[in-house]
Amino acid sequence: MLSKDTLFALSLFPYLGFLWFLTRSGQTPRLALIGFYGTLVFVGVTIPAGIYAKMVYHDTLANIDWLHGGAEIFLTLSNILVVLGFRQAVISKQSSR
């Protein structure tokens, strides 16, 4: 059985493929695409935050509220950008009718 850490690392490859196809298609709203790439920033922040939580607090990231919340802000911002990007595209499409 694979550990959760291994599964987390392996999940990056399909996501990178997803980003590659989205970028290549040229059909994804720019702001939404930035949001999808922002998810990688979230991952990049979460990994060191998890290591810090383990080394300093001897606990998992999920149990250190201020650290976990700080990392989750990046995911929230990414999600907001995705939503705003697609919202902007829908409004633009509706106004061009």
Score class of each variant (00 low, 15 high):
2 L>H: 13
2 L>A: 13
2 L>F: 14
3 S>A: 04
3 S>C: 01
3 S>Y: 03
4 K>N: 11
5 D>L: 07
6 T>A: 07
6 T>V: 15
6 T>W: 03
7 L>Y: 06
8 F>N: 14
8 F>Y: 09
8 F>T: 14
9 A>F: 12
9 A>H: 10
9 A>R: 14
10 L>G: 02
10 L>M: 14
12 L>I: 14
12 L>N: 11
13 F>D: 02
14 P>C: 15
15 Y>R: 00
15 Y>L: 00
16 L>Y: 10
16 L>G: 07
16 L>K: 06
17 G>A: 11
17 G>H: 05
17 G>Q: 05
18 F>I: 14
19 L>D: 06
21 F>G: 01
21 F>L: 15
23 T>N: 10
23 T>Y: 12
23 T>A: 11
23 T>K: 07
24 R>A: 13
24 R>W: 05
26 G>H: 08
27 Q>D: 04
28 T>L: 04
31 L>P: 01
31 L>S: 05
32 A>N: 08
32 A>R: 03
32 A>S: 13
33 L>G: 02
33 L>Y: 09
35 G>M: 09
36 F>P: 00
36 F>G: 02
36 F>I: 13
39 T>W: 02
40 L>D: 04
40 L>Y: 01
41 V>Q: 05
41 V>A: 08
42 F>E: 13
43 V>F: 04
44 G>N: 04
48 P>F: 12
51 I>V: 15
52 Y>H: 11
52 Y>G: 02
53 A>C: 03
53 A>P: 00
53 A>I: 11
53 A>F: 02
54 K>C: 04
55 M>C: 00
57 Y>R: 12
57 Y>N: 10
58 H>N: 14
58 H>S: 09
58 H>G: 06
59 D>T: 14
60 T>F: 08
61 L>D: 02
64 I>Y: 02
65 D>W: 07
66 W>V: 14
66 W>A: 13
67 L>E: 13
68 H>C: 04
71 A>K: 01
71 A>N: 06
76 T>C: 02
77 L>T: 05
77 L>M: 11
77 L>E: 07
80 I>Y: 10
80 I>S: 05
80 I>C: 10
81 L>Q: 13
82 V>C: 04
84 L>F: 07
84 L>Y: 05
85 G>F: 05
85 G>N: 11
85 G>Y: 06
87 R>M: 08
87 R>I: 10
88 Q>D: 14
89 A>Q: 12
89 A>H: 06
91 I>K: 05
92 S>R: 09
93 K>F: 13
95 S>V: 10
97 R>I: 12
97 R>D: 03
